[in-house]
Amino acid sequence: MFKVTFASLLIETLQSLFQQGVRVKEVVKYLDHLAFKSLNIIVVCVSFAAAVTILEASFHMKLVLHDDSLVPGFASMLIVRELAVVVMSLLLAAKIGAGIAAEVGQMKISEQIDALKLLGINPFNYLVLPRLVACLIAGVLLSLIANAVCLLTAALVTTWSLDQSMAFFMTAFRRFVLMKDLGFSLIKGALFCGIIPLVSCYYGMTCEPGAGGVGRATTKSVVSSSICIIVLDFILTLVFSSFY
């Protein structure tokens, strides 16, 4: 019997892209269902993450340098290069990764995947590819939104807590953050979010029967997606650093 491995899932999904194309209707459905319905939680969490970053950076700079005027610049750089996209991706891994693993796992247990096969539907093309494409697109769009929300919050906290003006924040932002920082951030966002459906569908498709099986699949999916995101972040940061 054909056993799904992560490598086979990846190969079959990519093969199905070239052989059967993408189901656009499904992509649109998942884009809304998986990504945009996560917008509220992303906005709230990245805002607080940005606020804490400003406050902590200010506290430590004052402690060591007795001057926190560099906080807006450094914080902006940190937000665009790391914070917004990583927090957003980890949130998505928890929210949609668990959902995908549970849904696909339940489909496997209840033989819906067999039913698809009997209709001549490639389950990788029907279940994995639309989610992958939706998450890649959502990764770019949500990275943009997360960065914008993070920077806006950082600017507001800077003016409120650090007694620095919005204009000062904007000047520091322009001096410290380069256009390619934003480009790399969007690439990271797409790749991090692309990992989530692949890992989650893999655990869903290899889910063991029963409620316990679905529970284990969702847990493994969230943990593995999060680890993959963090490891990939390290690798991409190393790669992108060679462009400076």
């Binding site: 209840s110 033989e111 819906q112 067999d114 039913a115 009997l118 209709l119 001549g120």
Partner: peptide, 20 residues
């Protein structure tokens, strides 16, 4: 032939496998 085969075969699954 695969398409013909699929069109000629129907199956009720043990757990119904309905698309919920």
């Amino acid at each position: 032939l695969r398409e013909e085969h699929l069109a000629e075969v129907g199956m009720l699954f043990q757990q119904n496998a309905l698309f919920d």
